[in-house]
Design a protein around this nucleic acid. Structure first.
Length: 490
RNA sequence: GGGCUGUUAGCUCAAUAGGUAGAGCAACGGACUCUUAAUCCGUGGGUUGCAGGUUCGAGUCCUGUACAGCCCA
């Protein structure tokens, strides 16, 4: 590791000269994006990482980058004197420096800070990845995200947008009078959705606890408690495989509103998605995995039954029993991975035959009660519920319903789920008696909505892999290696 | 879980048929006051992911393994 040794050598020399390579805090700075708005002749100061150095004898240009942008610097021997020689000798690409100087435009028109003084703020001991190919190895990008952020402007921009979208969503909800809350991540019963949970153990209580798979049942308790508009934006955890669309921990928005129903939730869902989309200047059109997607209100609506008719050419009479769905699954050469129930079969058929066709934002509404244990039955059609799922680019983006208020019905639906569990079904919505008790106190007519934030951000930033919108995606830890680190100096 | 592909210098990538492992950038030394992938001259840099095997000889072929990517479930 020769280059690193060279830089450590410089570090030692600096110390010997009485210069702290990890300098004092200098606060009178502004981010690069702000500085770039200055007029020629203005005096500006900033602190950022040097990403490129171009030396020309007694004149040196350098590029400085922070999270907000890039700025060219010029260093002149005739302005800096001995300090210019210090620059040439001790400042490397990767170092973080404080600079102060005056703005001007070069002959070629590049906005540049002519440096009057600079201070080393942190010495970079390792060479940065190559300057124009950047980091290609996905593993480095995910494990050493800081390198990705230093080098890759697109990545930087993607995470800046992520932050801005989440801010836009929060502001929208606050403006609508929603209260933001935090409910337990450690839950004794991981209910509210059907997925395998992570298990952990609390020593003092000597009980197993589960990382939540959904905050749903807690948020509805809060509606019972009188918080009529409530939301939570946070992590859920599901113990399932990792692929382009799945990370074991992911960010979910859930909100509940009373008075409200799933019609209201369609409006809110559109509001949220348009608010997030407004952050990306793409005029509501994106291209995702080769699909052209247009965001335009109102989003399309189609009933669950009609979706089968339209996209799979199947009438409800063709698929309303386990025998019929099983036959079709075989006929299409599909494979059932879960237990053989009508609920699993109809879900499988939907996932395979309908979902991939839903490119533009589409609300699929009025689901069968058998696959919706927390949603309110339709008054005119009690085998169906007031529920929708939102699909975009063939991906599920959201799930919402008019919430089931009837504690007796809720109890019996939990019981059905538990029967399924006993018969070997792994993923069911677990019985939560305390939640039923809460319903007995009276849940007013409520609409509830969940939106997968990571997937929304993937879509709007046209990122095909969920790992590209999560700063530190879950990876298998590296076993060997433990990259050579410096010996502690004490 | 299954299949395919990848892993070579700090970074990005080469290496034809199994025959001394190369280039660009980065680094180091030198020239250079308007470059922006600066340019020019020169120098150093490798346990080819890891562990075995075949062979006179392995980056290359075989087996196993680790990690990653893609596809499938």
């Amino acid at each position: 590791m020769e280059e690193r040794e060279v830089r450590i050598g410089k570090l030692e020399q600096l110390k010997a000269m009485g210069i702290d390579p990890y300098g004092k805090v200098l606060r009178n700075i502004e981010p690069i994006a702000k500085i770039r708005q200055a007029a020629d002749g203005d005096t500006c100061s900033t602190m950022a990482r040097v990403t490129n150095i171009r030396q020309h004898g007694k004149l040196t240009f350098a590029d400085l980058k922070d999270f907000t942008g890039k700025l060219q610097l010029s260093f002149r021997k005739d302005a800096l004197g001995d300090k210019y020689d210090f620059l040439k000798k001790f400042i490397d690409v990767g170092d973080v420096i404080y600079v102060t100087g005056s703005m001007y435009h070069t002959g070629r028109g590049e906005l540049t800070l002519d440096v009057m003084d600079f201070v080393l703020q942190s010495k970079c001991l390792r060479p940065l990845p190559e300057k124009w190919h950047g980091v290609r190895d996905p593993e480095v990008r995910y494990r050493q995200r800081y390198l990705d952020l230093i080098i890759d402007d697109d990545s930087k921009e993607r995470f800046r947008k992520r932050s801005a979208m989440i801010k836009a969503i929060r502001e929208l909800l606050w403006d609508k009078g929603f209260v933001e809350v935090e409910t337990p991540i450690l839950q004794p019963i991981p209910s509210g959705a059907s997925a395998r949970p992570f298990v952990t153990h609390h020593n003092a209580l000597d009980i197993d606890l589960y990382l939540r798979i959904a905050p749903e049942l807690y948020l509805k308790r809060l509606v019972v408690g009188g918080i009529h508009r409530v939301f939570e934006l946070g992590k859920n955890f599901r113990n399932e495989g990792i692929d382009q669309n799945h990370n074991p921990e992911f960010t979910m928005l859930e909100l509940y509103q009373t008075p409200g129903d799933y019609e209201d939730m369609m409006q809110v869902a559109e509001d949220i998605i348009m608010a997030a989309a407004s952050v990306c200047d793409n005029n509501g059109s994106i291209n995702f995995k080769g699909m052209d997607v247009h965001f335009e209100r109102p989003f399309e609506r189609i009933t669950f039954k009609d979706a089968f008719r339209k996209y799979a050419n199947l009438e409800w009479d063709d698929i309303n029993t386990l025998e019929k769905t099983t036959a079709i699954i075989k006929d299409k050469g599909l494979e059932m991975t879960k237990t053989s129930t009508w609920a699993n079969a109809i879900q499988k058929l939907f996932d395979e035959l309908v979902q991939p066709n839903l490119i533009n934002p589409t609300f699929v509404i009025d689901y069968p009660v058998a696959i919706s244990p927390l949603a309110k039955r339709k008054t005119d059609e009690p085998d169906f519920v007031y529920r929708f799922e939102l699909f975009v680019a063939g991906m599920e983006m959201g799930n919402a319903f008019s919430e089931l208020q009837d504690p007796f019905d809720q109890k019996s639906r939990f019981e059905e789920q538990m029967k399924l569990k006993e018969s070997g079904e792994e993923e069911v919505i677990l019985m939560d008696e305390d939640f039923v008790t809460a319903l007995e106190y009276g849940l007013p007519p409520t609409g509830g909505l969940g939106i997968g934030i990571d997937r929304l951000i993937m879509l709007l930033t046209e990122s095909e892999n969920i790992k590209d919108v999560i700063l530190f995606p879950t990876l298998r830890p590296k076993v060997e290696e433990a990259t050579e680190t410096i010996e502690s100096t004490n």
